[in-house]
């Protein structure tokens, strides 16, 4: 018999495009559904969905669109949700500066990256000018 449950040891990533405002709304809904399915607390659901929303908007607004890959992870008996935001946009010249609250290049509040980092448990960013930006986050179930 073939199990349709995801194999948690070897995460299978699903991909969603991030090309429009509507894609961002769709991602928020999808992330919420994934977190409800693995019984995250309401506060942790909200934090993770909000972080995903910030990063999806960055991919769209600064990266010129891209995609997000996501998967449920299992480690040390705990479950988590991993999201990877990928764009092939102009990249970030100074990553530490971009992570500083209040720093913005497009008239926003500059809370997106730094704020998203505070809301999740793991946050990695790789960016190369001219090549694009990849941000990986994980929120673990408490």
């Amino acid at each position: 018999m073939i199990s349709i449950a995801p194999k948690l040891g070897s995460p299978e990533f699903q991909t969603l495009p991030l090309k429009t405002d509507e894609n961002v709304v769709a991602l928020r809904k999808l992330v919420r559904e994934q977190l409800v399915a693995i019984n995250f607390s309401l506060v942790d659901q909200t934090k993770c969905v909000t972080a995903a929303s910030e990063l999806a908007r960055n991919t769209l607004k600064y990266g010129g669109g891209g995609q997000v890959r996501f998967s449920v992870l299992a480690a040390d008996g705990s479950l988590g949700l991993c999201l990877v935001f990928i764009d092939a946009g102009p990249g970030i010249k100074d990553v530490p500066q971009a992570l500083t609250d209040g720093f913005t290049t497009q008239g926003g509040l500059g809370l997106g990256l730094g704020g998203a980092r505070r809301l999740v448990d793991e946050f990695d960013i790789e960016s190369e000018p001219g090549k694009g930006t990849t941000v990986r986050i994980v929120k673990w179930k408490k």
């Binding site: 506060v43 909200t46 934090k47 909000t50 509040l109 809370l111």
Partner: peptide
Amino acid sequence: AVAITLVELG
């Protein structure tokens, strides 16, 4: 949960 998240977001 929204209030908690907004404050943490800054």
